[in-house]
Amino acid sequence: MLLITPPGVYPAQGDTRLLTEALEREVLDGRRVLDLCTGSGAVAMAAAALGARVTAVDVSRRALAAAAANLLLNRRRVRLRHGDLLAPVAGARFDLITANPPYVPSRSAPPRRGIARSWDAGRDGRALLDRICADAPALLAPGGVLLVVQSAVAGVPATCAALARAGLRVGIAARLRQPFGPVMTARAGWFEERGLIAPGQREEELVVVRGVRPV
């Protein structure tokens, strides 16, 4: 897959790869797939390559422009929608929903513009995760699957508990440990003060949480 990632658009990284690997273990041919926080469109294109009918959503117009360019470059068909999380697809139903939302704890509320909007997610890192856990299950068809990737610093147990409360059967689809990137490294001292990481810890665990709506 060839990807154009202009300035201001979140580049495909370890979380993108981990979510894509989890996606590829699902049966997708002919299925309806929704990719939230699509960024450059990497996960959406992976689903389309497996025969899915894909809709991708992002709040950033710049990200959607990059995704559109990448779709042309890779000759994939994906419906792109601009808007806040699930708002552009309200009332629709999907067999699979993927999400790679911002999840890095930040000292302030999530910004409304700029590249930091791709990762800053409030003091606990759950500004968007909690909304996805609360609202996405209702858009799943019976037997539908939700895949959400996040860092362990943003509370994987909280995600699992929220999806279980929403009626999904919950498990862990994939895990990956990787060194902190520049953003996490810059905040490591603050994370230590808050007990989000152990003293001296400079790597994080990425986790894909999988929720299934009962048939």
Rank of each mutant, 00 (worst) to 15 (best):
S151Q: 12
L64H: 10
L64W: 08
L176N: 01
L129R: 08
L23G: 02
A66W: 03
G155W: 11
A87Y: 02
A90N: 05
R117T: 15
A67Q: 06
G195F: 07
G181I: 00
L50N: 10
R126L: 13
V57N: 02
A99W: 07
A87G: 12
T38E: 04
D124W: 08
T185E: 15
G189C: 06
L3H: 07
R126M: 07
A136H: 01
A173S: 11
R175V: 08
D124R: 13
R31A: 12
R31I: 04
D29I: 12
A65T: 10
R32G: 10
L3R: 03
P105L: 09
N74V: 03
N70R: 01
A44F: 04
A127V: 09
A87M: 12
R177F: 03
F94I: 08
A138I: 00
V59P: 00
R123W: 12
R81C: 13
P179V: 11
R76K: 12
R177G: 07
R187D: 04
A173M: 05
L73N: 05
L128Q: 11
R76N: 03
R62Y: 01
A49Y: 02
E204Q: 11
L3K: 06
G41R: 00
G41P: 02
R17K: 13
V89E: 12
V33G: 09
G41L: 06
D120C: 13
T55R: 02
L28G: 08
A22I: 04
C160N: 01
A63E: 05
L129N: 02
L3D: 02
A68S: 13
A154M: 06
T98G: 04
A161H: 14
E26Q: 15
S118A: 15
V212M: 07
A49I: 03
P110E: 01
R53M: 11
G125P: 09
V33L: 14
V148A: 00
R75N: 12
L176A: 13
A66P: 06
D120L: 08
A152Q: 14
A66H: 03
G51S: 03
T5H: 09
E193I: 05
Y103V: 00
T16H: 02
L129K: 05
Y103I: 00
R113S: 14
G91V: 11
Q178K: 10
P102G: 10
P11C: 05
G167L: 08
P105Q: 06
R113D: 12
L19D: 10
L71W: 07
T16L: 01
A162D: 07
A46P: 01
S106E: 07
V215G: 14
L206A: 08
R61I: 03
R131S: 09
R32L: 10
D124I: 03
N100K: 06
L86W: 08
L2G: 14
E192F: 08
G143V: 06
V149Y: 11
G181D: 12
A109H: 10
W190N: 03
R131K: 12
D135S: 14
R169L: 15
R213A: 15
L96P: 08
L96F: 10
T5E: 14
C160I: 13
P199R: 12
F94H: 10
A52P: 10
Q201S: 06
G144K: 05
L64N: 05
D35P: 02
F191N: 02
A164K: 15
R32V: 06
M1H: 11
A49Q: 14
E203C: 07
V57T: 04
A87V: 15
M184R: 11
Q150R: 05
